[in-house]
Every structure is written in structure tokens, then in C-alpha cells.
Design a protein around this nucleic acid. Structure first.
Lengths: 334, 334
DNA sequence: TTTTATGCTGCAAACGTTTGCGGCTTTTGA
DNA sequence: TCAAAAGCCGCAAACGTTTGCAGCATAAAA
């Protein structure tokens, strides 16, 4: 268990450990024969530099704290995947924390991360109030928010153009001939507000009546969507398409529709938002709006790196473009 | 950005920083008024103990390295979720690394983790060869393998009873009246070998003919399953049920079947293995064998903690029980 | 040969903690 | 009143690096 230190290989090489450190870090003031001899020796002895000691003196841990509401959520885990890959390729490691389900835990893990001396924090907010919740800490270390729009807050974030996403989705339904489109989902976070706005904008432009069916449940889950949709479908179906504010909701709607024998897509067209993996599964094939998760994650770590390495001050709001993914749940009307 | 140190609050409190340290750690040799005064002061000044300095002297980082082939995989991300929650509740933080897709990267990240001085490593192997691949490192730090059976290897791991899972799945099909059951999937990792063995055992006991359709593709994905199933279905359908060695494969099979108008479950019953989230989605409703992911993750970190904290030597093979999840893809025959 | 420059290496401080040990003050017991 | 015990607290070393600075040898220049 006792690992070999600089001192050990220095002794073996017959030089001071400062020399070994310099040889490894490629300092130009070390002779090339000495360097090679030392490097070879390090290899043989299985030396790996102790990052905690290194971090101590460098005042830099090369660690990025990644906090997500819960990593088992498809959307988050995809973001995490790309974030980790990208971070590592730039020499950073990821410290993972689940912040859900309550605000207290979110605060706790962020504080924890600070104690760990992470160089920066990447956070996908668990609620619209996250910014307030962790503001005190976000000022102490480079932080970028991921996937949730903060709109007017003085904080860096990267997110899709949620409004545009809903806009193109609605327009697509229109082009398919639909004139009665229901917007399904909550609206109390900025993200969801924006989506609703995109829908409304499309409706205005196209001369459509705006119709909402929303709730203020906290998490957008399949089950929530399902429960809600059962309510919805027990009333008259005076619309031909639904724009669901999240894929999870859409999936719930789909389940309810199947149970109540409402034919998707023939009687009802359905479109979601996010393009989570399940939407591409056989039999589901949900038409949806894609969030470019890879790009989002990569941009977020780039932004964070910029703050960390260049000390960039201020904040930037990076908005990426969503894409319409046509699959099987939308049909031309008539 | 400059954080407040022990020294700072010591100066403010008018005591030495050793006293502050002791007050915080609850040492009995500090007077209670002093302690309370110090704690209050720490709060006000926003002091958080620097974990890297602490780790340095304690020779313990309270860090667990979690390496998974790719966190965006449902199965892995669920394990990761529970592992992180459990680890954190015991004072550990998780350092996340994706090891996929190649063996080289797996080795690299494990080496990295060692450099980070993690107290232990939790690894879900990316291939049957993982053990060989990282053995050199696994000897240097407490390590437990997750979800993959290592069978005779002298290493701790926790996994389901894969054999039993396949056994009960096959038996279930038998009880439904099926007599011609095809086993679909690869067999070259221990895990998959065990599943195949469970199937064979059931066949023997029940007097069924054993039928295999397998391949040696490296990753069990929906697409692989799909491609293979298209092949399979182009030949005669002289079986009434398929036991797929993974849910991913089963999903691929389902897709191919739908395309080729083979009615699941009426013409063909299908059962998977793993119970990944997608299987419970509307329209899919795949009958499957559940791996108790939460329990697996929790047990794995318990095991790891035991090694770390008590220095427990030797190894233990923890086998958990799988459960049959009855959903919609299996029908009684006749 | 002497001086200067150049190339390489070692010394030691610093990073922010934890903790054994010694010392001071106060209380207790006789 | 004095000694011993007890209760608190500070000193300083240690953890394993990085790096500014000084020092030594050798090579080049005068």
C-alpha cells in the first residue's frame, strides 16, 4: 500500500528529489541523459506523482465538481458523460455529486466541493431557485450552470434555445396541418417559461389559438405526465396535437393514451422535448426536439476552463440551437 | 478567491491554529466555551476545512474512484447514483471516470485515480479482460468489482446470480407453456456464460432442447441485437420464445420483430435481463430479470469501506438475487 | 592562466492541515 | 500553604510536492 515517492526514486537515482521533479515536469534545466535515466527509473519503480501533494503547492487541484440533480436521469448522465470525457482530455478529473432531491442537499454538496478545493463547478440546477441557493458559493469559485436558463442572472450558463425549440416544434405540427395544438407541461422555471413562450410565438405568427394544460408539479416525470394525461383525456379531445414540454411528460402522455385507446399518431400527434434516449427506442419513436447534449457539455467545460485558466471574469450566456428529430408520433392531418 | 484558513480564524480568535483544528474536530481537550466561540467564528468567517491539506497529513482522501465503461449507459448511471449517495452518506466523495471504449483508457483512468490517492476503487468492468488489465493497480488500493462476475479470481466483487436469473426466466417461460426457447446473446464473458448456464440448467431439468443464437460482438447494444435479430428472423421461426441475455439485445429484437411483423408477445414471447429503465417504458413493457442495482451499489461501497477502514484483507464474492419482472412481452402458449 | 558565461543540480521554503508532547494555569486534596 | 493533578492550549514536525535561488563544475572567452 505504501506508494513510492519522489524521494525514493531520487535516492535510487542518486540525485535530489528536486531534480526528479524537474525531470518529470520537463524542465529545460535538466540534462537530457539525467532526465531519461530518471524517467526510466520512475517507470520501473512504478512512481506516480501524488496529486494531493501537488495540488497543495500548486494551489490547483485540476478537479471539476459536477453536480446534477440525479445522475441516473438519462439527460444528466449523457451530459455527465461528455463533460467527463472532455474534462479529462484537458487534464481535469470530475468529482460527481447528486444534488437531489432537496435544496438543502444541493447546498451541502456545493459546500463540500469547495472544501475539496475544486477548480470549478459545473452544475445542472435542480430547480429555478438553484441560483439563489448556491450564489454564496458560486462567487468563490468559477461556476457554470448547465441546461437551465438563468436569463437575467449574472452567471455563466449554457443552454439550448428553449424558446426556439418549442417554436420549431409547433411550426412543424402546423405544417403537418394541425391547427389545434395543446401545450402540455409546467411553466414555472425559466426553461419551461421559455418553451411556453416559443409555443406562444408560433401560435401568434400562425394565427393559432393558444391552449395550455399545465400543472406545477415539481419534477417532470413520466408518472406525472401519465397522471395528468389521464385527467386530460377524460375530457373532450378538441385538439389534434400535443406539444409536451419534456420527453418524460410525452412518454407519460403516450402511456395514458394507449390505455385509453387514443391512437398516437393517427388520432393525436405528439411531440416532446429533450430527445432523451428512451425516445428513440423501438415502439416509442417519439418525435422530439433535441438538445445538443454533447455540445452543451463540451462548451460548458470549455467555458469553465476559460474561467479557471485565464481567470476570465464576467459571465456569458451560451445558447445552442435545438433540432427537430422527426420520428413516428406525428402525422399529417387529414 | 482566497479562502480563509485555520490560521486566519486562529488569529481572529486569539488562539493558535492547533486549537482551532482541535475545536473543529471535537477534541476533548478543548474547553467548551473556547470551542463554541471558535465554531461560531468559523461560521461567520466562512471557513471550510481544506480537504487537500487534510488528506495530505491524514494519508486518506475520503475519495472513491468510480470507473464505469460509460456513465451515459442506463445501467451504469443507476449504479453510480446509488453508489454516490451511499458513499457520501459515509463521508466519501466520488471521482468519476469513463473507462470506455478501449482497454487502454481503462488502464489510464485507474492509474490516474491512483495518482489522485483515492482510498478505494469501484469498477464496473468494461470487458472480461478488465481484471487482467488493471490487476497491477488493484493490488495497490482496495478495489471492488461491480456487476461482472470474476468467478475464480482473487478479487472482491458484487454481482447478481446471473445463472439463477436465466434459470428463473427460462422456467417462467416453461410454465407459460413454451417448449421451444431460444437463448439469444453472447457468451464470452463470465457473466454471460453464467446466464447461458442458467438457461441450460433449466433446459436440462425441464427436458427442453437447448438452442443458442449467439455472436461475439463486443458490446451488447440495441443495434447489435437488432442486426442480429434481422438475420435470425429471416430463417424459420421454429421456437415460441426468446430469452435475451440483455435488455439491450431484447430491445433490438423487439425492433426487428416489429419491422418484420412478428407479433410480440402473441407469436413470440420475449424476456430480457437487467431491467434497465427503458424496459418499463410505455409500449415497451419488456418482461425481464431485474438486477437489484441499488443493493448492488450499496453493498459494493460497504465492502469497499470495510477494506478501507478496517484494512480487511482477502476477498469476498457477494452474489445477490435477481427477480423476475413480469410485464407485457410474455404470453401463455396456446 | 584567469575571468566570464553556461549548464546542471541541490537546498530549503511553502502549501494548510493534524497531532504528540511539553508547558502553563487553575483546581483539588492534604 | 504547598504539592499534585487536571484541564487547556501552543510548538513544531510531518505529509509529498514545486520552485526560486544559490552553488558547483565545466566550457568558452580573453
Amino acid at each position: 500500500m505504501k506508494s513510492v515517492t519522489l524521494k525514493d526514486v531520487a535516492k535510487a537515482a542518486g540525485v535530489s528529489y528536486a531534480t526528479v521533479s524537474r525531470a518529470l515536469s520537463g524542465s529545460p534545466q535538466i540534462g537530457s541523459e539525467t532526465r531519461e535515466r530518471i524517467i526510466k527509473l520512475c517507470d520501473e519503480m512504478g512512481y506516480t506523482t501524488n496529486y494531493v501533494a501537488r495540488s497543495m503547492v500548486m494551489k490547483k487541484t485540476d478537479l471539476i465538481g459536477l453536480v446534477v440533480p440525479s445522475i441516473d436521469n438519462q439527460f444528466n448522465s449523457e451530459l455527465a458523460y461528455y463533460a467527463e470525457m472532455s474534462a479529462r482530455s484537458h487534464g481535469y478529473n470530475i468529482m460527481l455529486c447528486n444534488s437531489g432531491p432537496d435544496m438543502k442537499q444541493e447546498k451541502t454538496v456545493v459546500k463540500l466541493l469547495l472544501g475539496r478545493q475544486v477548480d470549478g463547478i459545473l452544475i445542472v440546477p435542480q430547480s429555478p431557485k438553484t441560483y439563489e441557493n448556491i450564489r454564496a458559493y458560486a462567487d468563490q469559485v468559477p461556476t457554470v450552470f448547465l441546461s437551465e436558463n438563468l436569463r437575467d442572472q449574472p452567471q455563466s450558463y449554457v443552454a439550448v434555445d428553449n424558446s426556439r425549440g418549442a417554436y420549431i416544434g409547433t411550426k412543424y405540427l402546423y405544417e403537418l396541418g394541425h391547427r389545434d395544438i395543446l401545450y402540455f407541461g409546467r411553466r414555472h422555471s425559466t426553461t419551461h417559461q421559455l418553451r411556453a413562450e416559443g409555443y406562444m410565438k408560433a401560435c401568434q405568427e400562425l394565427g393559432l389559438r393558444q391552449r395550455f394544460f399545465n400543472s406545477e408539479f415539481s419534477h417532470s416525470s413520466i408518472n406525472n405526465g401519465y397522471q395528468l394525461a389521464r385527467d386530460l383525456f377524460s375530457k373532450s379531445l378538441d385538439y389534434t396535437a400535443i406539444f409536451a414540454s419534456t420527453d418524460s411528460n410525452a412518454l407519460g402522455i403516450m402511456k395514458a393514451a394507449d390505455e385509453m385507446h387514443i391512437d398516437i399518431p393517427n388520432r393525436l400527434s405528439l411531440i416532446g422535448f429533450d430527445n432523451i434516449t428512451a425516445t428513440g427506442m423501438p415502439r416509442i419513436e417519439l418525435t422530439t426536439i433535441e438538445q445538443p447534449k454533447r455540445e452543451m457539455a463540451v462548451q460548458a467545460v470549455d467555458m469553465l476552463r476559460d474561467k479557471i485558466e485565464n481567470g476570465t471574469q464576467g459571465y456569458v450566456h451560451q445558447i445552442l440551437l435545438p433540432t427537430l428529430i422527426k420520428r413516428g408520433t406525428c402525422r399529417p392531418l387529414g
